[in-house]
Design a protein around this nucleic acid. Structure first.
Lengths: 220, 220
DNA sequence: GGCGGTATCGCATAAAGATGCTATACGCCC
DNA sequence: GGGCGTATAGCATCTTTATGCGATACCGCC
């Protein structure tokens, strides 16, 4: 933070990282940048939270490791957002497995970077966060793009177009009557299609159809 | 494409972009890189598909604009994946609105970049795709991270813990009977809770509860 | 100590859904 | 031409849901 005044455009940083060498490298490098001021560096989530109390200027951007002793970076996300509602949290981790990535995003992380990210690139990413972006390492982003591609293993694959229309109606919460109206069919025709859908999907109620069709990896 | 032999490590590119200046800039710049060989550049999706027939070497990576005359880049994604099952498609667009981003990812795009991406950075991103990554411009990624944060506006917030248990049962496709068994309740108690849930959520069927509870921006 | 909210349970009835069986019509394919 | 799959439709019947109108019990609160 040095002697320079903290002017408005400066981004105040918080860093949570248990490995001493990495923490110091991050702090020193980033604090040396004119755009950043590192206001709090901690070796654990608990330490970080405790340190917040004594700060005159709160961080607006927190860089957090995931594999921490005590409360993990992901577990601490909710608390962090409560204590620093204006701050954004960027995860920095050696782990890039889908579980952790999704859980972090779900808990409100604004981005997710590999720990191997070189410092100058990391700086770029931090600036992007400040500019409204959400930096993700490519391998992290790959999990995300995969998530959005459900039609590959979609259980609705074996259904005819008409049957899929019906299923869409069910997913939208419509009654048989409303589905019939929407598709311009008779009630009994809707019944027929649904019967067929039930046979193909091996179920016997509308809610089961929904449960089957949105078969996401149960990450939630 | 040049005279150099196409060796295994080389990435064969396809480019779909209607604006002549941009298309040429992309082709020329990328083809000049040692890592890439641009095998097909087209001004429209239709032209690209037609051009595939005459190729000796198929592209393994396609860079596609979205705002194209005729078939849009998103509409063409499915066809592209059918014709080039081994290829990955990276979207390049001036539009970064959530609708288009999600639709593209849903249709199987491997990444999504802003058109303003400088060429050297674009090259980096292309290499990342080849390395199994999914590059996304930060503003694009922001849509994605926002998507994964549903608990903020969760409509189930006003429900009591017990009522949420019931809703979970409904979401799992269970009948009243099974929900009662799972929670160790009588059928009538389940009915009572569901009645309450219906009142709070302003609905009147189990499928509507599901439709409300997973209130995603109806992108699917 | 009463009031509001939650959680539990019961009964009754009407509406919606699930299921069995049947039937016509169209398109496709061998 | 006959079989197969799809889309349409009807009817009968039984089950499940949805809804109305109760009840008892516990807990926190002012």
């Amino acid at each position: 933070m040095g002697v320079a005044p903290t002017f408005a455009a400066m981004i105040t940083l918080g860093i949570i990282e248990d490995q001493l060498a990495i923490r110091e490298a991050l702090c020193e490098y980033l604090d040396a940048q004119p755009e950043f001021s590192c206001v709090l560096c901690a070796a654990s989530h608990e330490e970080f939270v405790a340190g917040l109390a004594g700060l005159a200027v709160l961080p607006t951007l927190v860089l957090s490791d995931i594999g921490l002793p005590g409360r993990s970076g992901i577990e601490g996300l909710a608390l962090l957002q409560q204590l620093l509602p204006a701050a954004e949290v960027l995860m920095l981790s050696v782990y890039t497995d889908a579980e952790r990535v999704f859980e972090a995003l779900r808990q409100g992380a604004v981005g997710y970077l590999e720990k191997t990210t070189p410092l100058p690139l990391l700086k770029e990413h931090l600036l992007q966060v400040a500019a409204g972006g959400s930096p993700m390492s490519p391998s992290v982003a790959r999990h995300v793009t995969r998530y959005f591609r459900p039609q590959a293993a979609a259980p609705l694959a074996g259904l005819t177009p008409r049957e899929q229309d019906i299923v869409r109606g069910i997913e939208d919460g419509l009654s048989y009557k409303l589905i019939a109206d929407r598709l311009g069919l008779s009630l009994d025709t809707v019944r027929s299609h649904i019967r067929q859908v039930y046979r193909k999907l091996q179920v016997n109620s509308r809610t089961e159809v929904i449960a089957k069709s949105r078969s996401r990896p149960s990450l939630w």
